[in-house]
Design a protein around this nucleic acid. Structure first.
Lengths: 211, 211
DNA sequence: TGTAGATTTCATCGTGTGTTGAATTATTCA
DNA sequence: TGAATAATTCAACACACGATGAAATCTACA
């Protein structure tokens, strides 16, 4: 958490410091936790153990820092791939929902999700980056699920996006808003009720290819 | 948008000014548009055509102003009631989804939704207020749908919350993130594919009462 | 009429912000 | 070795913020 110790006096340090990476990581964390306005250059610099001026030296303005920080991947799409790869005992949809819900229970996920939403909702640019990330990294991973290969590219896109809408809705109501009935339900309960929905979106009837 | 014209000199104005209401409305708009940190007392005062000190005079601190502004209802639950009351030609779920999607197409809804999320995601207090609002105002309205009366209170809560999760997920992916496949689909397409899901949540099998 | 209270502006305070320029130290390479 | 360049800190600027206290103007009520 405190990657670099701040030395008292100025001038260049010896050896590779990796300072600009430390700044970027601190920035990502601060932007995620506090949002764009709430994150201050000074706090980011303090987190990185560095003088605020150094942040500007590396990244110029706060906007540029933000843009750079947003380019870092946050959600491990490997986790999704792992969930898909592991043995689906029940239906695929149930398994997917269960994996997602279980993943969310690990520490810090709520904060990370909140942070992502905070950033995305705070600026159109961050929103575009998030959309790009979801569309280019997350959805294709889900699209590799068995049974989707037979559909056209457009229809598969549509189906997978519907899955995303339901699962993100679950995340929103359970993690962010905390609707009692959703937040209070167990992983198994939710997986049992929502799983079939995901199955239907993935391979069931009634999916219209969008153009 | 500019309810009260700012006069040059100090002292009380004659007649009822409704200034504190104007301040509250300006605050709501600013908090919704810019989030808690982004909204400034000065901007709110300017929007209300008033001196910044007057804001403090009426509401004390910025936190208190925020709390007061959050208490104003934003989402018209009458719209939901109207949608439920109007003739459901297709299934109830399809009708509900179609109504929601159509409502969103009217101007300003995306901004209002974004603002709500912005505020909710920015502070735990706003989140609690949003949860309270959804749980106490929105959900009971949906719960008056035909066919839900036969369920226990807990099960009806669970079912309605599932509906909320799917519909909010749709709003998130269509309005906020703008996932191409969802944002690009037509209202009828989405209603046709998501409607049955809502039907199943409302009256179908596989719903586990929480607790 | 007079006076207590409500509404409004003004001037200002202290603090924290993003940003800049110069100074200091280390590295690289001719 | 020496010169160019990169990394780092320091000190400070200008500005916007939330907040406060006093003064000015109006209303309500005795």
């Amino acid at each position: 958490m405190t990657p670099v110790a701040k030395a008292g006096r100025s001038g260049r340090r010896s050896g590779e410091s990796g300072t600009s990476d430390a700044i970027l990581e601190a920035a990502r964390a601060q932007f995620a936790t506090r949002g764009y306005q709430g994150a201050t250059i000074r706090a980011i610099a303090a987190d990185a153990g560095v003088d605020p001026a150094l942040v500007h030296h590396f990244y110029g303005t706060k906007d540029a820092l933000f843009a750079a920080a947003m380019r870092m991947p946050v959600v491990p799409s490997e986790a999704i791939a792992a969930a898909l790869a592991s043995a689906p005992q029940a239906s695929l949809g149930t398994h997917l929902v269960k994996s997602a819900l279980t993943l969310w229970e690990s520490a810090g996920v709520r904060e990370a999700f909140l942070g992502l939403l905070r950033s995305a909702v705070a600026s159109e640019e961050a929103m575009a980056l998030l959309r790009e990330f979801v569309a280019d990294s997350i959805l294709p991973t889900i699209a590799r699920a068995p049974g989707l290969a037979e559909f056209s590219r457009a229809e598969a896109d549509y189906r997978v996006s519907l899955v995303a809408s339901q699962i993100l809705g679950l995340a929103l109501t359970r993690l962010v808003i905390g609707l009692p009935a959703i937040a209070g339900a167990s992983v198994d309960e939710l997986a049992a009720t929502v799983g079939p929905t995901v199955d239907r979106y993935l391979t069931g009837d009634a999916a219209v290819p969008g153009d």
